[in-house]
């Protein structure tokens, strides 16, 4: 579904990604793990079109999409929930969801999707007239994910969804992520600091170090790998 072929990306003169290649197949959860500053967020930003790659190719469903504006990528079905959630603080919960549906014209279907999300996250329905900035961290993460789902993504990019959340909330969130993947058939590329958790839900994983992919395997194999255990799983 998504394929990155030898991507280089840079911020000014600082090169953040070198020759990154990875593949996400339909229906999978693929995780990208690595230390701070390894280039995980940059990889997602390159896919979303915010940091266009300076070399290499990005293919989505077989067609090259590198260099397309973010708007076009959302239209094609790639949507990202960025690190730190980025809920629009002064828009209400309902308005935040409206922004997820910004590009959609199928009003009736939009309303149905919104109801579906309200059922999935009843707390959002309760707070639909409240500004997004007044929600708790966990609620904001639910809102951010719901807003992304309103775009009807075929590929959902999640950047550090567990960041700043209590352990109980994190577990709940990951159950929902699995549900989104299994029940709604959405493919997910998951960037996660908490490698342990990420490798439990993912089918496959890539390890990023200093802007390079240094390893990739099935999640189960990565979990058993002694190097990974030492470096990322704290075993």
């Amino acid at each position: 579904m998504l394929e990155l072929r030898a991507i280089d990306a840079a911020y000014g003169h600082i090169q953040a990604l070198r020759q990154v290649s990875l593949r996400v197949d339909r229906g999978e959860i693929v995780t990208l793990i690595g230390a701070n500053g390894a280039g995980k967020t940059t990889t997602l930003m390159a896919i979303s079109g915010l940091v266009p790659p300076c070399r290499g190719e990005i293919l989505f469903e077989g067609r090259p999409v590198g260099g397309l504006p973010p708007e076009a990528l959302v239209r094609l079905g790639i949507c990202q929930v960025p690190e730190g959630r980025h809920v629009f603080p002064d828009l209400t919960v309902a308005e935040n969801l409206d922004m997820g549906a910004f590009l959609r014209r199928d009003r009736r279907q939009v309303a149905a999707d919104r109801e579906h999300l309200y059922n999935l996250f009843p707390v959002l329905k309760q707070r639909r007239h409240q500004p997004g900035g007044t929600l708790s961290g966990g609620e904001q993460q639910m809102l951010a994910i719901s807003r992304a789902l309103m775009t009807r993504p075929r590929l959902l990019l999640l950047d550090e969804p567990s960041m700043g959340l209590a352990p109980l909330m994190t577990r709940h969130l990951f159950e929902i992520i699995i549900k989104i993947n299994k029940e709604q058939q959405r493919t997910i590329l998951l960037v996660e600091q908490n490698a342990n958790l990420a490798l439990q839900v993912a089918d496959r994983g890539y390890v990023l170090e200093n802007g390079r992919i240094v390893m990739h395997d099935t999640a189960a194999a990565l979990r058993r790998n002694p190097d990974i255990q030492k470096a990322y799983l704290g075993i």
């Binding site: 708007e71 960025p82 629009f88 910004f102």
Partner: peptide, 8 residues
């Protein structure tokens, strides 16, 4: 940035 990411 978020506006861009939802396709605005």
């Amino acid at each position: 940035k978020m506006a861009l990411l939802v396709g605005i």
